[in-house]
């Protein structure tokens, strides 16, 4: 520590880390909160069907529900493994 640092108020920053971590986890949990309860089961069943044909990882499926004023959109995205093509 330099001599100047002694006179400078320097936050040690653990609160900053806490804030960043919280921002991410809270945003993630809020996004999940607004999804229907059946989503995890739906995801599992779709995965089972796909696996009858193609071997994919469980994280290969992304499901999102988006709401706007008129409608709800269920967005489903499946990435297939490259070597299967």
């Amino acid at each position: 520590m330099g001599l100047l640092d002694l006179f400078r108020k320097k936050p040690s920053g653990s609160a900053q880390t806490a804030k960043e971590r919280l921002r991410i986890i809270v945003a993630q949990e809020r996004a999940q909160r607004n999804t229907p309860d059946y989503l995890p089961v739906l995801k599992r069943e779709i995965l089972e069907v796909i696996r009858r044909y193609v071997q994919v990882d469980s994280d290969a499926i992304q499901i999102n529900v988006e709401k706007d004023e008129q409608q709800e959109v269920l967005e489903l995205s499946i990435s297939l493994p490259t070597d299967e093509r």
Binding site: K9, P11, S12, A15, Q16
Partner: peptide
């Protein structure tokens, strides 16, 4: 502790919640 940077400040908590 907030001044030392080791505790979330009022503003931090307000911003998150």
């Amino acid at each position: 502790k907030v001044e030392k940077g080791d505790m979330l400040s009022v503003d931090d908590v307000l911003e998150i919640l």
